[in-house]
């Protein structure tokens, strides 16, 4: 079998697991949400339907599945709006935050780890090891809250007292109120600068733990790679250190790093709930949190489904990427 046929088979085998997983997860959420809705006092809600009995629950669940294929997730129990609309308007914010946090993690974390491994046991490496260990242990929600207090409350207070103008970084929402109310007054550049300032602290808080995790992993991995024989060969051939490091060492350690990042994705999506709540970020996470609190199960089900799809497909993509990056897997039968 040629390599393309094998990868097709591999993808089919992997994706065969995705659909039962998604079904299982959504059914579990459906049961839980129905149970909690029936125990709470939602019966006065006009959108609320009381379902009891296992056959009715199954019937209702299959009805839901049938509707999902036509992108009809039902109506929210809180305001009667279609769930799909509510999610679509929140999705860009979540993607913006998650993607920028992931990029920040990769751009800062991997070079940090490489540099540490290259200068192993130097003063820089030792102090960076301690710093990444501290970052690794900081609870993200607390760091977020402290940054909100420092940059959003105390810094404006101090600058107002000293210089007469309150300077601080925005710590909630995605855009300033003025930009939402009067969108025509501002130039393209101003709008994007405002959005950049808003995403800066949430994305930083988001990526602190991940930067530390990635840097620690890359460091440990690079140390092993740098001891390999082919690195010695490359050096003795007279290659420049830059070439040895980036062309020979990093290329080989990137394979396991990709897998490692794909393992991180579920936890990144999971922590986006807390970060979005701390920074009042108008994304899926905050919508999900509020919906869970309100037992608004059509919304919760839809978010659960979307998260499951995003996670499982990103895992699948990582698998395929891994397959392409590592020639050993392709050649081996």
């Amino acid at each position: 079998m040629n390599s393309r046929g094998r990868i097709r088979q591999y993808v089919i085998k992997k994706s065969a697991f995705i659909f039962p997983t998604i079904l299982g997860i959504t059914f579990l959420i459906f049961l839980l949400m129905n149970y909690s809705a029936s125990t709470s006092t939602q019966s006065e809600n006009i959108f609320y339907k009381n379902i009891s009995g296992i056959t009715n629950i199954l019937k209702e669940y299959f009805e839901w599945i049938k509707n999902v294929f036509t992108l009809d997730f039902g109506k929210s129990l809180r305001d009667g709006r279609p769930v799909w609309d509510k999610i679509i308007e929140r999705l860009p914010a979540t993607l913006e935050l998650n993607v920028s946090a992931l990029l920040m993690t990769i751009i800062i974390g991997i070079p940090l780890g490489v540099w540490q491994a290259y200068r192993i046991n130097s003063k820089v490496d030792k102090s960076l090891t301690i710093i990444t260990f501290i970052f690794y242990s900081i609870p993200a929600f607390w760091l977020g809250l402290i940054l909100v207090i420092l940059l959003g409350v105390i810094l404006p207070d101090i600058t107002k007292e000293w210089f007469g103008i309150s300077l601080g970084l925005p710590t909630s929402e995605r855009r300033s109120l003025n930009f939402i109310l009067y969108p025509n007054r501002y130039s393209f550049f101003q709008v994007y600068w405002d959005r950049f300032l808003h995403i800066l602290i949430p994305a930083f808080t988001f990526s602190v733990v991940n930067i530390a995790t990635i840097a620690r992993y890359v460091r440990a991995n690079m140390i092993l790679v740098l001891k390999e024989d082919y690195i010695v060969t490359a050096r003795s051939k007279g290659l420049s250190e830059k070439k040895v490091l980036f062309k020979h060492a990093l290329k080989n350690s990137i394979i396991s790093t990709v897998t490692f990042i794909s393992f991180l994705i579920p936890s990144i999506i999971g922590s986006s709930f807390i970060i979005e709540v701390v920074f009042s970020w108008p994304g899926i996470g905050r919508l999900g949190y509020n919906s869970i609190l309100a037992r608004d199960y059509p919304v919760v089900m839809a978010i659960g489904l979307i998260i499951a799809i995003i996670t499982l497909f990103s895992n699948l993509c990582a698998d395929i990427l891994y397959y392409y990056l590592d020639p050993r897997i392709r050649v081996k039968k």
């Binding site: 579990l28 839980l32 936890s267 999971g270 499982l312």
Partner: peptide, 23 residues
């Protein structure tokens, strides 16, 4: 093993939130 894989590949924090809310 399938159960382990499923639990590890899904963002369990969301599942935790729904479980917590139901109890």
């Amino acid at each position: 093993q399938t159960l382990i894989d499923v639990m590890m590949s899904f963002p369990s924090f969301f599942l935790i939130l729904t479980i917590i809310a139901a109890m």
